[in-house]
Simulated scan of single mutants.
Amino acid sequence: MNEVGIGSRVINFSVDTILIALIAYGLYKWNNFYVYYWQHKFYPFYLFFYPMVFIYYTLFEAFAGRSPGKWLSITRVRNLKGERPAFYQVLLRSLLRLTFIDMFFIIIFDRPLHDQLSKTRVVEA
């Protein structure tokens, strides 16, 4: 079980963030259609983006063990024993990704906060 470095994590983050942003933007524009034509309540983009981050990572990591970014970089999420993470670990990872300070813990722990607190690792597939 070889833990991946920062380069693979940057690829994962970039690919996944682009996909999440595209999905959230589509939902945002769909909502704007209803706002314009049916006078529904307007919601700003971030109210689509942040829930989409949580849903995206929770679904992909719970059911497939990896997100599209991890498929591209040939990595996967594992617990400390090298097994698939439990669902509560995936939920915690997804929730902690929403915090602004998550990435700054790479300096302290050599991994982001969502890996450290959920006791998971991103390893080579």
Rank of each mutant, 00 (worst) to 15 (best):
F87D: 03
I74Y: 11
G26D: 07
S8C: 05
L91F: 13
I101N: 05
I55G: 02
L117R: 05
L72A: 11
L47H: 11
L19S: 06
D16L: 11
K70W: 08
D115F: 08
S94M: 09
I101D: 04
H114C: 02
F104D: 00
L117F: 14
I11W: 02
L27N: 06
F105E: 05
R84T: 10
V123L: 10
T75V: 03
R121D: 05
I55S: 04
V53Y: 07
V35M: 10
T99H: 00
G69C: 06
A64N: 02
Y34A: 07
F105C: 03
P44R: 10
L92N: 08
I23G: 05
L95E: 01
L47G: 05
N31G: 09
G65F: 11
F33I: 13
R84Y: 12
F48M: 03
V122A: 12
S14C: 08
G26F: 14
F105I: 08
L19R: 10
F60D: 01
P85T: 11
A24M: 11
Y28L: 08
K70C: 05
S8E: 10
D102F: 09
N31C: 09
N2V: 12
Y25Q: 03
V4P: 01
D102L: 03
I20H: 02
L95K: 00
Y56D: 08
V10Q: 00
F104Q: 00
G5V: 07
E124H: 04
R93G: 03
S67T: 15
G7A: 10
Y28A: 08
V122H: 06
L27A: 13
V77L: 14
R66N: 03
A24T: 09
T58C: 01
L113R: 06
R111H: 11
M52A: 15
G82T: 11
L117D: 06
R78W: 00
I11P: 01
V77A: 14
H114G: 02
